[in-house]
Simulated scan of single mutants.
Amino acid sequence: MLRKRDVPRLFDLVTAMPSAETDSAMLDLCQETLRLYPYRLQTYFHINLELVRRGLCDQLEDLWDESVRRLPNERLPRLFNALMLIAVGKLTEGFRRREALFDGSDWRGRTTVAPPAYANWRGESLEGKSIVIWSEFGLGDEIFFFRFARIFRERYGAVRVTVICQAPLVELFRASGEAAAICSVEDAPLLPIHDYWVYPHAIPVWASLDIDHLPDVVPYLRAGVAHTPMALPGNLQALKVGVIFKGAPTHENDAARSLPSLSCLDPLFALEDVEFYIMQKGQGEDEAADYAMRLRNVHDLGPGLRSFGDTAKLMDALDLVISVDTSAANLAGAMGRPLWLMLPMLGDWRWHLEREDSPWFPSARLFREQGRGWPEVVERIRLALIELRNTR
């Protein structure tokens, strides 16, 4: 009689990975897991997490290539394969694979307004031509890719660059002076014909970007030509630090990127000669209001920020912005304002892997969660704040 042999559960295998005493032992466990569960997407997610935690990022490309080979008809392995290539710095190939996932798909999967019927830009010469950068995905994405308005003009010779964006960004983008015209998605159907249009995420497929030699365009956003400096409460001789501790709850990775509570930052608020300005909108506003009532060096400015233009003016008045991965963090980076970014261990592709700096935003310093929770990240930030305060 044949007996079923005992096979370890996937849960037992992946929970054993962090306990492996050596990297070699952990990699052996990964191979065993892949052998037993090669057709489960969760297998690749868990191995990915452990490889990143141990700093074995050179193994990630092979891992996700294997996922595509084993699961050829599924979309998510191909998506994560593309995103991992971008994260390790292979921009052109990563964005090419990512863009291939959208070939022939409905435009509603990436924008809120139908793109025009004229030519979709695929690397053709833009010398003397006009092009529209179309609205795509979230506000942070549109801020991030707005850099290409200048790049198309200065490097590619476009005579006219128009940007279609979501309504909250229109004022901010117009103040930059970087594009000939800024148009909200609501007004997009009224746009005159251009030579080309392009989705922002498709641009790196054709723009031949080198992660180590990106175009020097930062800052490309600003608070306005002649705005009145924002008056701040508190001790203005102290270090002035803006804080954003949560993103939008609808984001697919919000549970990982947002802090569970403002109380995570209590060690920072205990510092002397530092004033904190909470810039929270949406979730977390109640906590910000409570802290501002209890602590003399914490100020709740979120309710007064009615636009990205207001947020930009506030950032201009601050010495530093400390933020989780949000659209406001992209704004600070695009303005060239000092930014300390709190990142989960597995974050967005634009922050890449292991780096403490950002090739996209030179003013940013990255503080990554390394598998030991947010308190360890906050402690590193606390020590860095003390150093910054003492050397001002």
Rank of each mutant, 00 (worst) to 15 (best):
F137C: 04
V170R: 12
V205L: 05
P260H: 09
V324C: 06
V113A: 10
V88G: 02
E21V: 13
C264A: 14
A179L: 01
R392Q: 08
D12F: 15
P18R: 07
W134C: 14
K240C: 13
R97S: 03
T250Y: 10
R368N: 03
A329S: 09
Y220K: 13
W351E: 04
T162D: 03
Y291C: 02
V198S: 09
P192C: 01
A312K: 02
A158G: 07
F245Q: 00
L56P: 08
C30D: 04
L239K: 03
G284Q: 02
L27S: 01
L126A: 06
A202P: 00
A82Q: 07
I386L: 13
F367M: 05
C57P: 01
L190T: 08
V7L: 06
A25P: 00
F145N: 04
F269G: 02
K129G: 07
K281H: 11
M279Y: 05
H213F: 06
V52H: 00
V217A: 04
Q280V: 02
H46Q: 13
W121N: 01
P233K: 04
S105R: 15
S261C: 12
G309H: 01
L101A: 03
R160F: 12
E99K: 09
R372L: 09
R337E: 05
M279D: 05
K129V: 10
A248T: 11
R257H: 00
C264R: 14
Q166H: 10
R350N: 11
V68H: 08
T92G: 06
G336L: 03
V377M: 04
H194N: 04
T15L: 13
R296D: 01
G234I: 01
S105H: 07
F361W: 15
F144S: 00
I151H: 02
V68S: 07
Y39F: 09
R155H: 14
F308C: 03
E93L: 12
E379F: 11
E127F: 13
N73F: 09
A328T: 11
F95T: 00
E74T: 05
Q59L: 11
